[in-house]
Every structure is written in C-alpha cells, then in structure tokens.
Simulated assay, not measured.
Amino acid sequence: MPLHRDYRLLDGPPPLADYLRLRLDSGLSPKNEAQGAGALTGSWTFRHVVDTAGDVVGMGRVIGDGAWYFLIADMATLPGHQGRGIGGAVLDALLAHIAEHAPSGAYVTLTADPPGRRLYEQRGFVDVAPGRTGMHLVTAAPGSR
C-alpha cells in the first residue's frame, strides 16, 4: 500500500525529541537522551514520516555493519496514524536501502511485537523458531550494581 498523500517519508532520523516522544507514545520502551542520541548517530540508515503539519508520526531504522548483518529496529507509528500505510512505507524504504547497498545474501533480522507480525510476514520475514531461539540480555547501568 503506498503512503497516503497526507504523509511524507523522509530519509534520515527525526530530531532527538521526536524520536524519544515517538518511542514512548507508540508503546516502545522509553529511552533517555543519551540512548536516543546514540540511536540517531549509530544507525546504518533511518527513515521517518511526517504529517502535513510537519509532526513526526512514524519511524524505523537499520542497525548494521554494512556488509552482511542488518537489524530492523525502532519501527513505530503513533496510534492515531496507524492503519494508513506508514509502517509499511518505512519498512519498504529500509528494505530497499538494504537491497541497494548491501551485498547479496545479507542477513536481515528483527524482533516483532505481536501487532507488527503481519506487516513483517507480508514482506517475507519468517519466525526463526524452532530452528533458532531469539534471546536478549538487559545489562545493568554503570554504577547500579
């Protein structure tokens, strides 16, 4: 589904305050300014969507080494703007960038929340289980032990 005319897909990250707000308002875990700044500067590629007022309403990024491993992250659309093709447009743009700039055979991965599963499956993503297990590790902040 193409992006509705009331929205514009932009290359690059949103401003830091918008990134932090969009994460929080779309239901992703909150991050502090240092974490957000690292996400904006440490991404391999980033896309965000603005509405006609110029407000950031959606985003997504790729973390990667530029050679073979790429992680889709921070896919978020504000609840009031969901169902309008924003997430699909962001994901399609990110995948097109990988296809254009990464070598053939690149490994593209993500962790999907249940509401996003259909979007990813429509683009060919498959569950890695039971052949593999997804895991994560949350580390303690320095000085918190």
Rank of each mutant, 00 (worst) to 15 (best):
T41Y: 00
T41Q: 14
A53W: 06
D18F: 06
R21C: 08
G27K: 08
R21E: 11
A34M: 08
T52V: 15
L28W: 02
A34N: 11
W44K: 05
S43D: 10
R47V: 06
Q35V: 01
V49Q: 00
S26I: 01
P30I: 07
G54E: 06
N32S: 10
G42V: 12
P15R: 14
L28V: 02
P13M: 01
G60F: 04
G38P: 04
L16K: 07
G58T: 06
L40S: 10
G58C: 04
A53M: 10
S26P: 11
A37Q: 15
S26T: 05
G12K: 06
L16C: 06
G38A: 15
R23P: 00
G36E: 00
W44L: 13
L28I: 01
L22K: 01
R21H: 13
A34D: 15
S26M: 02
D25K: 02
P14S: 13
V56K: 00
W44M: 06
S29E: 09
V56F: 00
T52M: 12
L28C: 03
D55K: 10
E33Q: 14
D55Q: 15
P30A: 13
T52P: 02
L20W: 07
A17C: 05
D18R: 07
A37G: 12
L20G: 05
G42C: 11
L16I: 13
L24D: 14
A39D: 13
A34R: 14
T45Q: 12
L24H: 14
W44I: 01
P15S: 04
S43I: 05
R47M: 03
L22R: 00
L28D: 04
S29T: 11
V50L: 05
T41E: 14
P30M: 05
V50M: 04
P14I: 11
A39K: 01
S26W: 07
L40G: 09
S26N: 09
A39C: 12
G60L: 06
G12P: 01
R47Y: 13
G12W: 03
V49H: 00
D18A: 15
R21I: 09
F46V: 03
L40D: 10
